[in-house]
């Protein structure tokens, strides 16, 4: 939440990350990203826009097709598999589906004990007590001997969060950690995350819930079809604030809040040629331009860059944020 001073060290630096699944479209397409110590970066975007894939690229769970990731100054691609496994204690991921990321054949206790033995060898002698402490902290007392299928959705989620926080990571990619939780439990999971390591863990917080993201994050990235189309301070993500300019996709997202003052109707998807070759990937659904507008030729031929609108706020749109060269 607090403003980060530029001096605090970079935890992660990614440049030009792209990934294409075999036979599919580019799930992530030229993403640059820097995360500082203790910073919470929100990542929003429609379903299938590549948020999860980006998170996995950052942690080198999927190796990127192009681009590099440096974690604490070390290029992850250059590490041997063994060294990379070591670094994993400092970078963790919470998967989107909690139920599927727990082993159905192991109990809650076995999951956590394993983590302690693996990532906190110095505490291995009191592994048992540490697991009990963790279970208490995550309100999972009495669930130690249960299998994941015997837990409710909220409990499964808390186990996953507990497991990823136990190694005290410096970077945590949390993929929709609050999806499908009721308001009470949701706030609870968020608290647990925010208090991790006394606020020194940096997060990539992926979520659909804009209000949660605004509450949790310092900075928000908006992703659309594999690209970061907007980068802004979390406070700018306010449905009721119509002063701030946004990327047309963000505008549509915000206007869909039930509290929003106006609703942006997006046109029915226009048929366009290959959206992934050149031009703005949002042009098929953009309400800021029309095929007969003068701006359309630029939108359909040039991929817009992220252009600063204000301090800490960059947008990639030819109309909302024309680049200085274009404007002249």
């Amino acid at each position: 939440m607090s403003a980060q001073n530029a001096s605090s060290s970079l935890v992660l630096q990614a440049k030009g990350l792209s990934h294409r699944f075999p036979g599919g479209v580019a799930a992530v397409n030229g993403v640059d990203l820097e995360i500082r110590e203790g910073e919470v970066v929100g990542l929003v975007g429609e379903s299938g826009s590549g948020k999860t894939t980006l998170g996995k690229l950052l942690l080198h769970i999927i190796p990127p097709d192009t681009g590099r990731v440096a974690f604490e100054g070390q290029d992850l691609a250059e590490l041997s598999p063994r060294e990379r496994r070591r670094t994993r204690s400092r970078m963790q991921m919470i998967y989107q589906t909690a139920a599927a990321s727990l082993n159905p054949g192991l109990t809650v206790g076995q999951h956590l004990e394993e983590t302690v033995r693996l990532h906190r060898p110095e505490d291995a002698h009191r592994a048992d007590a540490l697991v009990d402490e963790t279970l208490t902290a995550f309100r999972l007392n009495g669930k130690r001997a249960l299998h994941p299928s015997q837990l409710s959705g909220g409990e499964q989620r808390r186990v996953v969060v507990a497991r990823s926080l136990l190694p005290r990571p410096s970077l945590l990619v949390a993929d929709e950690p609050t999806a499908g939780l009721d308001a009470s439990v949701k706030a609870d999971v968020i608290d647990l995350l925010r208090n991790a390591r006394g606020g020194r863990t940096a997060f990539l917080f992926i979520s659909h819930e804009l209000d949660v993201v605004r509450y949790v994050a310092d900075r928000v990235l908006v992703m659309y079809r594999g690209r970061i189309v907007e980068c802004m301070p979390a406070a700018a993500l306010d449905p009721r604030d119509t002063e701030v300019d946004h990327h047309p996709y963000t505008e549509r997202l915000l206007s869909a809040a039930f509290k929003a003052t106006r609703r942006v109707e997006s046109p029915m998807i226009r048929p366009t040629e290959d959206l992934f070759k050149a031009g703005c990937s949002y042009r098929a659904a953009c309400h800021r331009t029309e095929p007969d507008d003068p701006s359309w030729s630029r939108c359909s031929q040039h991929t817009p860059d992220l252009i600063p609108l204000r301090a800490g706020h960059r947008v990639s749109c030819h109309v909302v944020a024309p680049s200085p060269t274009e404007a002249s």
């Binding site: 929003v44 975007g45 429609e46 379903s47 929709e176 999806a179 499908g180 659909h208 819930e209 804009l210 549509r252 997202l253 915000l254 206007s255 869909a256 809040a257 039930f258 609703r263 997006s266």
Partner: peptide, 14 residues
């Protein structure tokens, strides 16, 4: 039963 979980806001609204 929770038809909008995991969908973005614009789809949720729709």
């Amino acid at each position: 039963d929770e038809p909008t979980t995991g969908l973005d806001w614009s789809v949720r609204r729709d």
